[in-house]
Design a binder for these strands. Sequence first.
DNA 1: ATGATATACCTCGCCTGTCAAGGTATTATT
DNA 2: AATAATACCTTGACAGGCGAGGTATATCAT
Lengths: 112, 112
Amino acid sequence: MALSADILRGHTDAIILAQLMAGDSYGYQINKTVTERTGGAYGFKEATLYTAFKRLEQNGLITSYWGEEGPGARRRYYAVTEAGMAKLAEDRQEWNETKRVMDALISWKEEL
Amino acid sequence: MALSADILRGHTDAIILAQLMAGDSYGYQINKTVTERTGGAYGFKEATLYTAFKRLEQNGLITSYWGEEGPGARRRYYAVTEAGMAKLAEDRQEWNETKRVMDALISWKEEL
DNA sequence: ATGATATACCTCGCCTGTCAAGGTATTATT
DNA sequence: AATAATACCTTGACAGGCGAGGTATATCAT
């Protein structure tokens, strides 16, 4: 099942921050990693991705810099800030809470 | 932690449908049940709730009728349709997939 | 009586994140 | 020369959440 982004709306920032915890990266690479990690079940639309970078940077959760130019298209790298790490920790707690709440509300068990 | 609805955006319909599987109910009651079931961690804003009812009914996933008038404010009851039950089954699968995807993307383990 | 609180419903208009569609540029492959 | 892959970006439309406002009934405290 391919997930629509509207289902994951609000989790985009957390997903990006989490990927950056493994090291600085750039848009195209991050998206490929996301797609691989989910077995193709999920990937960002480009507009969504770059909108998110902009938002994250404006909120001080990531910083960006142009990569050293080798051959090929230029790459803008992103790095998590301290604030970004703190935010990710919050988001992870929030995700655990989300799972708890959703499972309590839509699971089968309660109805049997 | 109190969850914002933006985190659960896209899951509102599934939550409502799941509550109605236990029997016909009305807005105020559904919301109280949701709040109780989540230990106060979640509840719909009224505008969100009634907007969702309208959407669900327009999509043929629920039907509504006014309750038999006893004393007190009038109540509009909602019932799940066959299409609603089918949709809920889909939504539940989707939720399982969402958990799988999110855990694959933001969990700690992968980084260690 | 009067005000407050709980129950119970509804609408309007703003806000925010997603994304289709459009664009630019480089390199490799056919 | 054309196509595809890499890599970035912006604009405007759309949809769901929700603050703020409204209506109405019943109970409880002052």
